[in-house]
Every structure is written in structure tokens, then in C-alpha cells.
Design a binder for these strands. Structure first.
Lengths: 109, 109
DNA sequence: CGTGTAAGGAATTCTGACACG
DNA sequence: CGTGTAAGGAATTCTGACACG
């Protein structure tokens, strides 16, 4: 049973000003990292950027890497690689579950 | 050991517009419930109200009670009563812990 | 490349008040 | 009592651009 907690961490509700305060980054930097496809805020009514706490964490991570001399493109590639790893992991789990279902019957997890 | 998780739920970062969308309440209503001391948003730089997810939950609770015909004053009294109950509970726990410490030595919890 | 900044405009939020009931 | 609304103003956010390097 996957516990679907309210998941406040992923909810995109924070405006850029607050994100700036929370991360110590300038709004310019935050918008730029979006331009470089490192973060993906929502838009409220198609206009104002809204971020999640998860985005805030990602931004602090990005800030550290930038400080360590990484370029945004490198950071992006790293993220894509990790993303792919996670996806494969999920696929693998799904296949195993599929085999279990096939042999021992269907049940919802 | 009290786990101090990031506690995103309590962090006051959401502007009134988003709260309005999240709760379905008008901004007028949200401000009014603050005036009646049912919620206590922070202010960013002393101006703009900032709410937590916890506030959002409280607001939905308030909305239900209003719908059920309760007045804001009654709702407030209820909350104060519950608050007092929680405080007494905490005090009680602290006293028991104090006795344990006195008899079996000091340890951090 | 990553970031600052001034520019002009649009949307957001604020307060105090009047209205209805 | 609880809520809507118009009013005027202030702060926020947006975009596209120029600048430096």
C-alpha cells in the first residue's frame, strides 16, 4: 500500500520571492536555472512561478554544485542520468511484481 | 530523540492567493478569520501574509464549521480549549519524564 | 557562462470603508 | 455577524535586453 501522504513537499505553492529568501539565491539566478532546465516551477494562472519545497531543496543542491565549479549543463546531465536510473529501478520492480502476479494471482499493491 | 523533520507543513510560505485557490475561500474570508484570531499567518517583510499547509488545513476545518452554523467566536473557544488540553498533556509527560530522570538518572530524549 | 540591473508593464496584496442583513 | 466590493496605493513578479567577462 503506497501511503499517499499529503505530500506537501511536492506541492508547487511558493512564490519566487520566498524561494529567494529560503535559498539565499537571487531571483535572477532562480529564473536562470529554470532556463537551463534544472528546475520546473508551475505557473499560477499561467503567469507567476510557483515552487515546491522539493524545488527549494534542488536549488540549494544546484547552488552548491555551481560553487564547486560545475556548469549548469553538467548539472543537468547528472540529473538526467540519475533520473534514468530511478526509472529503470521502477521498471524492474514492476516486472518482478508482474511475474509474481502471473504465478500467484492478481492482487493490488 | 525528537525527529526534527523539515516540517514543511508548518513553514509559512504560501501567499493568500494560493491559499484561496487551495481552500476555495475568498481572500476576504481568509483575512476575516485572521481578524477573528482563528489563524495566524506570518508577514513577509511585515507586509504580505504567508500561510503554512497547516494553516490551509485549519482553514478548511473552519470553513466546515462555519457551514455547520458555528460562529467564529465559538470556533475560537473550541480551539483554545483543545490547545489547553494539549498543553496539559505535554506538561504531564514532562513531569513523568522528570520523575524517571530523578530516579534512574539523566538522559536526553 | 552566469549574474546584475534598469525599464515598463501587469498582476498581487494591503488597508479602511461602505453595504447588506 | 460574515462577506462582497470599489478605491487607492504599495510591493511583487514578469519579460526582454544590455552589460561584463
Amino acid at each position: 500500500m503506497v501511503r499517499q501522504n499529503p505530500s506537501y513537499k511536492e506541492k508547487k505553492v511558493i512564490s519566487i520571492g520566498v524561494v529567494s529568501e529560503l535559498t539565499g539565491l537571487s531571483e535572477r539566478q532562480i529564473r536562470y536555472y529554470e532556463e537551463r532546465k534544472l528546475i520546473f516551477p508551475d505557473r499560477s494562472k499561467g503567469r507567476n512561478r510557483k515552487y515546491s519545497f522539493s524545488d527549494v531543496e534542488a536549488l540549494m543542491d544546484i547552488a552548491n554544485k555551481i560553487e564547486d565549479g560545475f556548469q549548469t549543463l553538467e548539472i543537468r546531465r547528472e540529473k538526467l542520468k540519475e533520473q534514468k536510473k530511478v526509472e529503470q529501478e521502477e521498471l524492474r520492480k514492476k516486472m518482478i511484481q508482474g511475474q509474481l502476479n502471473a504465478r500467484f494471482g492478481i492482487r493490488k499493491n
